[in-house]
Each structure stands twice: as structure tokens, then as C-alpha cells.
């Protein structure tokens, strides 16, 4: 079931990246917030992957080419601005997506209805930090603009239709653009002018074509589980 894998992998991979922040956050409150968001996403991932099969087999025993997440969520954390820009782009998308799914009666309606409350919180967190970094100091403004620009070309993939996910993708994209544009504007940041997809990579993550750092991320994530075949934990 490609659809559940796509949505589940998005949540699983972003959760993992956020987990890398533990013990490194700029302020104690962010240790709590980032771990909280990571946990919510991990919870979503577990529900979605369980629709397909055994969550641990799917998370730990698939190789890179079998993962269906968008490339945005596998991007390395970078500085705090990159983490926040990635979160803003993803959470605004996820909120729109889950709202549509929750309103429908498809296989994801129940999961989306639960998740949409969490996602609204994630979005608010990312939005508040985008405002603070964008409209904070000169340095934070520059860093935030750089992050917003750098990740922009990973956003097109969010709106590539996924088979089995019954939503209006064009409406999703339009609303995303409007919301992100509004937040960036209020943060005194410029909406990037470039294309939302790289020259060749649009939709690549959904087909198992990932970026180089992703393989290393999986190597770390899967190593222990793979070292003890058949063990239970």
C-alpha cells in the first residue's frame, strides 16, 4: 500500500531527524518542543506503517530504495533555521493534507483526525520561530532566509499526487503557497523565486530515489536491529 508507506515514511524520517537534536537544542524549552514533535510524528508513523505490515520490519529492514518519503524530510538538520524552515514547509503541508483526509471517509480518515491536532501545534511552533528568526537580529534574518531558500526546491515534491491518497493536490498546493507566503512575509523574509523542484528530482523520493545523506541516516537507524536478526526488543 504505497499511500500508507508514503505518509508513514514522511513521519518516520522527519521524526528521526528531530530526534538527532536531543541534547543539542539552543534552549531547554526547545529540547522539550523538538522531542515532543518528534514523538508525535513517530506515533503517526507507527499507525500508518502498521496499516501496511509490521512496523519494525518496515522501518528497520527496508533499504534506501524502498523508502517512499519525500526528500524534504530526510534533509540534514543543518542549523536551527534549517530545522525550522523544514518544519514549517512540512507542517503546513501536513496540516492541509490531514485536514482533507480527516474530512473524507478514506482509509486514513481516523489517523488524520487524530494527527491534525498535533500537526496544528507543530505548525504553530514552526511559524512562531520563523517569525522570531526572520524578524529577530540581522544574523538570524540572514540564516533564516538562507534556510528558506535552500529547502525551497524540495517543496514541489510535497504536491506530487500519491496513488491512494484521495485529496485535491492542486488546492493543497495553492493553500500551502498562500500560507507559507503569509508567514514568510510577516517574518520579513522573501519568498524564494526559484522553482519548487530540482531539475530531475520532482517526485523522486516517492519512487525511492533519495539524497546521499539519507543512506547514512538509515545505516545508523537500522544497524542495531539488523545486527540481531529475529530478536525481539
Amino acid at each position: 500500500m504505497t499511500a500508507a508507506l508514503a505518509l508513514g515514511d514522511d513521519a518516520l524520517v522527519l521524526s528521526h531527524r528531530l530526534g538527532e537534536w536531543a541534547g543539542h537544542a539552543p534552549v531547554l524549552e526547545e529540547e522539550v518542543a523538538l522531542a515532543n514533535i518528534a514523538l508525535d510524528l513517530l506515533g503517526q508513523a507507527r499507525l500508518l506503517l502498521s496499516l501496511v505490515g509490521d512496523e519494525d520490519e518496515l522501518a528497520y529492514l527496508r533499504e534506501e530504495r524502498a523508502f517512499r518519503n519525500v526528500q524534504l524530510v530526510e534533509q540534514p538538520n543543518g542549523d536551527f533555521a534549517h530545522t525550522i524552515a523544514r518544519q514549517l514547509y512540512f507542517s503546513v503541508h501536513q496540516q492541509g493534507l490531514y485536514e482533507q483526509l480527516a474530512a473524507g471517509d478514506g482509509p486514513f480518515a481516523a489517523i488524520a483526525a487524530k494527527a491534525v491536532k498535533e500537526v496544528a501545534y507543530h505548525r504553530d511552533h514552526a511559524e512562531q520561530w520563523t517569525l522570531r528568526l526572520g524578524d529577530g537580529t540581522d544574523e538570524s534574518h540572514e540564516r533564516m532566509q538562507r534556510a528558506v531558500d535552500a529547502l525551497w526546491r524540495c517543496t514541489g515534491e510535497l504536491f506530487q499526487p500519491v496513488e491512494g491518497v484521495d485529496v485535491d493536490w492542486q488546492a493543497l498546493h495553492d493553500r500551502w503557497l498562500e500560507t507559507v507566503g503569509d508567514v514568510l512575509g510577516r517574518a520579513t523574509l522573501t519568498v524564494p523565486a526559484g522553482p519548487q523542484s530540482g531539475a530531475w528530482s520532482a517526485g523522486a523520493g516517492r519512487q525511492g530515489i533519495h539524497t546521499e545523506p539519507f543512506g547514512r541516516m538509515l545505516a545508523e537507524m537500522q544497524h542495531l536491529h539488523r545486527s540481531h536478526p529475529g530478536a525481539s526488543w
Partner: peptide, 28 residues
């Protein structure tokens, strides 16, 4: 936190993340 990214099952990973989050809360 040294083991969050290597936790061997998703259930254990969730438990560990929640624990590390609680510790930050206790610090607060």
C-alpha cells in the same frame, strides 16, 4: 540521547524520546 537514533524498535524509540523529553522538563 546517544541511543535515540539507534533504538532497535519503534516502540523503544518512542519510550526513549519521551524519557529524554521528560528530563528536559525536570531540568526546567
Amino acid at each position: 540521547a546517544n541511543w535515540i537514533t539507534r533504538a532497535p524498535s519503534l516502540r523503544r524509540k518512542a519510550i526513549l524520546m519521551a524519557k529524554v523529553q521528560d528530563e528536559a522538563g525536570h531540568g526546567l
